[in-house]
Design a binder for these strands. Structure first.
Length: 184
DNA sequence: TGCTGGATTATC
DNA sequence: ATAATCCAGCAA
């Protein structure tokens, strides 16, 4: 049984946490026996005072989880057909989150989780998975350390995808040359 | 109550 | 380049 990352990992600056999530493993438990996993290979950071962040204009029913403690999921529905998975960062009352954009998975189709909507489909993540505390042992959704490529990989930092506000900020990170990354 | 745009994706 | 598809947030 793998140990979940501690709350102290998540309750730091969003811009520190985001690249450190690369190479970590997401484990989604369906029941006692079945689970699905993938290694995070692409992330984006969304912070307070960031015009592209859902929390930029204050607390609302949808984004309130971002104002809570770190290590909790923020899952939202977008474009009428996709879900996106985030992990809340920063301490309580400071909004922030990291969008998980792509996973490397052990499947024949290496690009089956190569995008924020695609990885939620792959893991069967829906609105039911919003506001899950990932720091508890026994949580249905956790993030763990692993020895992904002995943690020797190059990280590319660039601008975020699919946003119209603050599009110039270089708050997207991905693992160089990884086939699961959503876009170059 | 009505309107607009969206942290996407597959397909044309 | 665009359709698919629905809902959060805001205006009135």
């Amino acid at each position: 049984m793998s140990k979940p990352l501690k709350r102290s990992f998540f309750e730091r600056s969003t811009l520190e946490v985001a690249p450190e999530l690369l190479g970590k493993r997401i484990i989604l438990r369906k029941n006692k026996k079945k689970q699905r996993t993938g290694v995070i290979v692409e992330v984006e950071a969304y912070t307070s005072n960031d015009p592209a962040c859902h929390a930029a204009r204050g607390k609302t029913p949808r984004n309130k989880v971002m104002f809570g403690q770190g290590g909790v999921t923020y899952v939202y529905f977008i474009y009428g057909m996709y879900y996106c998975l985030n992990f809340v960062t920063e301490k309580k009352d400071i909004p922030g989150a990291v969008l998980i954009r792509a996973l490397e998975v052990n499947e024949e189709d290496t690009r089956i989780a190569s995008g924020p909507g695609k990885l939620c489909n792959y893991l069967n993540i829906t609105k039911e998975h919003n506001e899950i505390d990932c720091c508890n042992i026994g949580s249905p959704l956790i993030v763990t350390n692993n020895n992904y490529r002995d943690n020797n990989f190059s990280i590319v930092q660039t601008s975020r995808i699919g946003i119209s506000k603050a599009a110039h900020l270089p708050w997207r990170w991905y693992i160089k040359n990884n086939p699961g990354v959503s876009k170059l």
